[in-house]
């Protein structure tokens, strides 16, 4: 009857957006959480935060999404958030080759600071700017394949693949937890009852 009871329980997944400065992390997040697009976002200093609830496989899942500053200076601040993340979206800009070249650097960061079972996803943003494109979709795919992670090209501006990317990531995290679930171990943070003190923050995440 464990499935029955889980139906009514919220799961909480902690997601993290990383990538070079100016690739559109904040725009991607706003498109997903508020369904708006704004070209005049001020630069993110430190970290920003949004919550969105999605329903997947009959479960209500609360996504806690952390948007990090891209500039090198903020890395010590932002890498401390990697540890508790269930999923990480690594974003580059298809019109800026430098942001693509830095993917390996960001992947190394994930390896160093995130937990081993973190779900990763590669996002090539600004795919609406076809005439400015410098990184082909194939190159994005190839890097993703080499690292065994999923890949989407998105446009926060034109609302392309944003929801799909987040939902896919959430679903992958959910599926990963399935085997444990079948062993009658509750997964995710139980938000409605029980342990009050672990209702958020890094480190608390899904593992009780």
């Amino acid at each position: 009857m464990i499935h029955e009871s889980l139906l009514h329980h919220d799961l909480l997944f902690k997601l993290l957006l990383i990538g070079d400065s100016g690739v559109g992390k904040t725009c991607v997040l706003f498109r997903f959480s508020d369904d708006t697009f704004n070209t005049t976002f001020i630069s993110t200093i430190g970290i920003d935060f949004k919550i969105k609830t999605v329903e997947l496989q009959g479960k209500k899942i609360k996504l806690q999404i952390w948007d990090t500053a891209g500039q090198e200076r903020f890395h010590t601040i932002t890498t401390s958030y990697y540890r508790g993340a269930n999923g990480i979206l690594l974003v580059y800009d298809i019109t800026q080759p430098k942001t693509f070249d830095n993917i390996s650097k960001w992947l190394r960061n994930i390896n160093e600071h995130a937990s081993e079972d973190v779900e990763r996803m590669l996002i090539g943003n600004k795919c609406d700017m076809e005439d400015k494109r410098l990184i082909s979709e194939e190159r994005g795919k190839k890097v993703a394949e080499e690292n065994g992670i999923k890949f989407f090209e998105t446009s926060a501006k034109e609302n392309i693949n944003i929801e799909l990317a987040f939902n896919t990531l959430a679903e992958d995290i959910l599926n990963k937890q399935r085997p444990i679930e079948d062993n009658n171990v509750a997964t995710g943070v139980n938000l409605q009852g029980g342990n009050q003190s672990s209702s958020g923050g890094p480190g608390s995440c899904c593992k009780l």
Binding site: T95, Q96, P97, K132, R133, L134, S136
Partner: peptide, 9 residues
């Protein structure tokens, strides 16, 4: 592609 890699425009 070679040219585009040199400059965006």
């Amino acid at each position: 592609d070679f040219l585009r890699n040199i400059a965006g425009d």
